[in-house]
């Protein structure tokens, strides 16, 4: 990466960091939902754990671990898509796209912002889980970082798909930035094993990196081992999805330049 690319990426990141500095509701919103979700699921899991003995204690860990890790996928996806939408809402895309910022640098910026937004959103919830329920997500060891990385990658390619649709359909597609990953939650087997899904849904589930991550998480809680095979499959699926969605993005970006959508996208 050249110095010029680093400066351009930093320039656009700086624009977003200053936005958060001046807008406390945006900053508060980052941690609001992850913390609220963790509190609700934590209370629910503790209620059941108290009534089901040691099995309930393991289930408590699986559930709360699942909630916190799924928030990583949700926040990384929203973080990237909403950062793009901030440019649409401020009618600034025209200036950004006539600057020397390359499309890949724009994506690198959005991914970097997504990391920061996810950390700002999920880490307070992780700390609160430890404070309220004595649940330490990192007790599973370094494998947690591999789970988190795979879920973050999944959030990014889903977001890339959302941005592609915004490029095609304009701001009318912005609702997808909040909703699309929720639609994948049932297939991601966050709170239950893939085996409880109907046959056709299991097929969908195994195509998603998230289902492998959460199967691996449950295996780690039950066996205490590191489920490398699940992690490798999740990473491979992320690679495949990135290629597929990346091709879609390139096609839609070119189509947007052919149709003039880069100027009209906020209309």
């Amino acid at each position: 990466m050249t110095n010029g690319a680093v400066r351009r990426i930093w320039g656009l990141m700086y624009r977003h960091l200053m936005l958060y500095k001046r807008s406390w509701p945006r900053l508060l919103e980052l941690a609001y939902w992850p913390t609220l979700t963790m509190c609700i699921w934590g209370l629910t899991a503790r209620f059941f754990a108290a009534r089901t003995g040691s099995a309930g204690t393991v289930a408590f860990g699986m559930l709360l671990g699942g909630v916190l890790l799924w928030e990583i996928a949700l926040r990384s996806q929203m973080g990237m898509a909403i950062s793009f939408l901030e440019e649409v809402w401020s009618r600034n895309l025209g200036h950004v796209f006539v600057s020397p910022l390359r499309p890949w640098e724009l994506l690198a910026t959005l991914m970097s912002l997504s990391v920061l937004r996810t950390a700002a959103g999920v880490l307070p919830a992780v700390a609160l889980a430890w404070a309220l329920y004595a649940f330490n997500l990192f007790s599973l060891g370094p494998v947690v970082a591999l789970f988190a990385a795979n879920l973050m990658l999944m959030g990014w390619w889903v977001s890339l798909g959302v941005i592609s649709l915004i490029l095609r359909h304009g701001a009318g597609a912005e609702a997808l930035a909040w909703s699309v990953l929720f639609a994948l939650t049932p297939f991601s087997a966050v709170y239950y094993p893939v085996s409880v899904l109907p046959g056709w849904a299991q097929t969908v589930a195994w195509l998603l990196p998230s289902s492998h991550v959460f199967e691996g998480l449950r295996a780690a809680f039950v066996d205490g081992g590191v489920p490398y095979s699940q992690i490798v499959v999740a990473a491979a699926l992320n690679g495949v999805w990135f290629v597929v969605v990346g091709a879609l993005f390139l096609r839609e970006f070119r189509a947007a330049r052919e149709r003039g959508n880069l100027l009209l996208i906020g209309e």
Binding site: R8, Y14, M18, L19, S23, E86, S90, N92
Partner: peptide
């Protein structure tokens, strides 16, 4: 084509200076 409204004038110019 607008500049981000929440940013100060100096911040906006800094952004484009970097870009």
């Amino acid at each position: 084509v607008a500049l981000p409204q929440k940013l100060t004038v100096a911040e906006n110019l800094r952004v484009y200076g970097h870009l």
